[in-house]
């Protein structure tokens, strides 16, 4: 659906002492986002996420490489490609002197929607974003989060098959954030492809089907979410909990050949470790542990959160 080929963007910056006068915001990115995916792009500040999304929408011309959306070259036929895209920028402003419904009405016409379908579609977008009470208010009087909601309403208004969202959750209250997540999932089920960036990794982890980690303009990791989440932990990760810290759990675990990277937790009454064996071996390990006198009160498999993977893989440096 979206395809980036060797996508490169070089910016000029004013040279300062010891720094080059140009920044490679994205460096030969290759990425393929399939239909009906929710593709998350994460990375530290200045990694090049916004730059990438803007090139996808045809707002920035790449220095080299190309982007196709639905098979259409964005640089050659921007209007054709933009028909398929709904875009939300990371920072934006709205027209303060318009009313909420007028704002949406403007974009509905600008996207050349069918005249007859427009009122219903505006109502839908307004109610989806919980803006009914503000329908006839001037935008100037909206709060930050309401403006964000209106921005999202605008992006989905013309029912585009591809949504490109740059930090859509910023400024939203917890409930709205949750609703946004549900809404995006719903859109995805209805067949939309979503390309999204966010710094709230837990949200992305919950809804993305695929993920890429970008750092200093390069991809450090990309793939299906399951793939990214487990690929380089050796085997499964298991947490064992004891009723009290009376047993040298870490030492006992560390002595076993199929256990690695033991991380004691809290008051040493529990530990997380990587385990190379299967279910039968795990059962045996637990039996041995109990037999050795450990007051085991819980065993569970844990997965690394995206947050943890991210901080492990990314240096977190900004450019």
């Amino acid at each position: 659906m979206i395809r980036l080929e060797d996508l490169t963007k070089e910016y000029d910056v004013l040279p300062t002492a010891g720094k080059p006068g140009q920044v490679l915001a994205t460096d030969r990115l290759n990425l393929e986002i399939g239909e009906r995916e929710i593709f998350g792009l994460v990375g530290p500040n200045g990694a090049g996420k916004t730059t990438t999304l803007k090139m996808v929408c045809g707002l920035l011309v790449p220095t080299a490489g190309r982007v196709t959306v639905n098979g259409i070259d964005v640089e050659r036929q921007p209007e054709e490609a933009q028909k398929h895209i709904g875009y939300l920028a990371d920072f934006f402003a709205l027209y303060d002197d318009l009313k909420v419904w007028e704002y949406l009405d403007y974009f509905a016409h600008a996207y050349k929607m069918e005249e007859a379908a427009i009122p219903a579609r505006i109502d839908f977008a307004i109610s989806k974003m919980g803006l009914e009470p503000k329908r006839d208010s001037f935008i100037a009087g909206l709060s930050r989060g309401m403006k964000q909601r209106l921005g999202i309403a605008r992006a989905v208004l013309h029912d585009p098959p591809v949504l490109v969202l740059d930090e859509p959750a910023s400024g939203l209250d917890p409930k709205a954030r949750h609703e946004l997540k549900e809404f995006l999932r719903e859109l995805n089920r209805a067949g939309k492809t979503i390309f999204i960036t966010s710094h709230v990794l837990a949200d992305l982890e919950e809804m993305c089907t695929s993920l890429a980690i970008l750092e200093k303009g390069r991809l450090v990791r990309v793939g299906k979410i399951e793939h990214v989440m487990r690929s380089d932990s050796p085997g499964r990760r298991v947490r064992v909990k004891l009723a009290m810290a009376s047993f040298p759990l870490a030492d006992w675990l560390g002595a076993r050949p199929d256990v690695s990277t033991v991380v004691p937790e809290g008051n040493f009454a529990s530990a997380i470790f990587a385990f190379a064996g299967g279910d039968a071996e795990l059962a045996e390990l637990v039996a041995n542990l109990v037999a050795a006198g450990a007051p085991v009160c819980g065993v569970e498999e844990v997965s690394e959160t995206l947050e943890q993977i991210f901080s492990r893989l990314s240096s977190g440096e900004i450019m």
Partner: peptide, 14 residues
């Protein structure tokens, strides 16, 4: 300057 122009650019207005 106000950052509203990008949204106009991505519409289908010629």
């Amino acid at each position: 300057e106000m950052n509203t122009f990008d949204f106009q650019r991505v519409t289908r207005l010629t």
